[in-house]
Design a protein around this nucleic acid. Structure first.
Length: 430
RNA sequence: GCCCAGGUAGUGUAGUGGCCUAUCAUGAUUGCCUGUCACGCAAUCGACUCGGAUUCGAAUUCCGACCUGGGCGCCA
């Protein structure tokens, strides 16, 4: 019966372990094999004169990163890593790895991201890389757990959609029998429909697709989005939810992932403190004006340089609120007392934008008006507008980029590090 | 899409016209080695992205293609 390496102690007695051959050190009459599974590394020591022919033959034939099953007596040895080692009675090669390897799993020689992604299965064998995805998994668990406890319903909406009615970003066209179809850029319209369906609180974690030809460390053409929509809530309420999700996720990772954080050599993991500052858009522009050379004025989008300058000033997570209605989508609710600004917000990490959201326009006629004002044709929004004609609760929501959340949480320099098999302009395989 | 920087053994690199039969590390192969823990020592193996041009001579200069990294833009 195979046991995880982590549970092998000097007192274990007899043990059978399975894993990858991490390293081989042959000293002549004595050889050391480091065997790695996802829980840790165990030293297997072979005194060549004292083991069977079969063990010796297998030990001679093995290559690094091969898969082996080894059983034998565990001995307490102070000189061995972890104070214990295994002297094999059986040494079975389950799967022999070819040599040379496409990248060095033991990290003696670094590899470029491109090389690592080409051989991602080997890359993820490295504990510091595996840690990213273990932490990502824990973060997703915390997020799901939060929503369930808060009474949200988890929904799954189509990723194949009919038409580019939302405007804005480029979509990926796909062949859908004899019809024109696209990969969905966001679950926005569907989660709003679920408000008309009376679900009140919904969330979805799923892929979104954007056919932009961007070439940066924070954009992907396929990303994971965490989306919520809440009835009878305004932007203030869903900002509170967002803040809580972020803080609870960090708290959970802090509480449960200390080993993984240590593997990544993150010693100063900091849980952000709520509430996050609410910075009005107009003030954000003022900060940017003072700090960056490029001219920026009220009504402009906030570019990367401005984003970083404001982030440096704020020092932690913060919201940008009260955006000009003009530069937000048609479904953002304008303030009643000043319709030139709207109830939209972005959640920012000092490095980049993580999330955007808003209270939505729930009145059918107002929505039609706003669509027209943006220069779009309301007729092509039929399927979206229909639910607004039969009783639509007021509602608000947001979308949070899961990959960027992990990237900023772990201080990764490239969003691709936070994604197992990233999709960008250049990469479709593996 | 625009701009910048690149492409040298499996991996990561040095090398800016002849000193290159191309450096170093890691790796692989072989040999020696009974306490390694980035084991050590010795020998061997393994590379200039592709096509064209300039030149007596090109890894090095020029042109084109392909590929990569990064910045910007774009990202309702």
């Amino acid at each position: 019966m195979r046991i995880p390496i982590q549970s092998v102690t000097p007192e274990t007695g007899h043990a059978e372990i399975c894993g990858f051959v991490h390293e081989v050190r042959d000293l002549g009459g004595l050889a050391f094999f480091l065997i790695r599974d996802r829980t840790g590394i165990l030293q297997v020591t072979i005194p060549k004169k004292k083991v069977s022919e079969a063990v010796l033959a297998a030990a001679k034939a093995i290559s690094r990163e091969s898969v082996v099953r080894i059983s034998g007596q565990i001995k307490a040895v102070e000189k061995a890593p972890g104070g214990r080692e295994l002297v094999p009675e059986t040494f079975e090669i389950i799967s022999l790895a070819e040599s040379p390897l496409p990248l060095d799993v033991s990290e003696k020689v670094s590899a470029e991201l491109d090389t690592r992604l080409d051989g991602r299965f080997l890359d993820v064998r490295r504990p510091r890389v595996a840690a990213v995805f273990a932490i990502r998994s824990a973060a997703m668990h915390a997020i799901n757990d939060y929503f369930h406890k808060e009474g949200f319903i988890s929904i799954t909406t189509p990723k194949i959609v009919a038409a580019a009615t939302e405007g804005g970003t480029e979509l990926f066209p796909i062949a859908y029998f004899d019809k024109e179809a696209y990969l969905n850029q966001s679950p926005q319209l569907f989660k709003q429909m679920m408000m008309a369906a009376g679900c009140e609180k919904v969330y979805e974690i799923g892929p979104i697709f954007r056919a932009e030809e961007h070439n940066t460390t924070k954009h992907l053409n396929e990303a994971t989005s965490i989306d919520i929509e809440v009835s009878y809530a305004d932007h203030i309420e869903v900002m509170r939810v967002l803040e809580e999700v972020i803080v609870k996720t960090y708290e959970y990772v802090d509480k449960t992932c200390s080993d993984h954080l240590a593997n990544m050599e993150i010693m100063d993991f900091a849980v952000p403190k709520g509430p996050f500052p609410r910075l009005p858009y107009s003030e954000a522009i003022e900060i940017a004006k003072k700090k960056i050379e490029d001219p920026i004025k009220y009504g402009d989008d906030i570019g990367s340089a401005a984003e970083r300058a404001i982030g440096a000033e704020m020092g932690g997570h913060y919201f940008i609120v009260d955006w000009p209605t003009e530069i937000r989508p048609y479904y953002a609710m304008p303030y009643e007392n000043d319709p030139t600004i709207c109830k939209a917000f972005d959640l920012m990490h000092p490095r980049m934008e993580l999330s955007s959201g808003a209270q939505r326009v729930h009145n059918h006629d107002q929505l039609v008006q706003q669509i027209a004002k943006k220069g779009l044709n309301p007729e092509s929004f039929d399927f979206y507008l229909k639910p607004f004609r039969y009783g639509m609760p007021p509602h608000a929501g947001w979308g949070l980029g899961a990959d960027r959340l992990i990237m900023t949480m772990l201080g990764l320099s490239n969003v691709r590090e936070a994604v197992l098999f990233p999709r960008d302009m250049h990469r479709l395989v593996p």
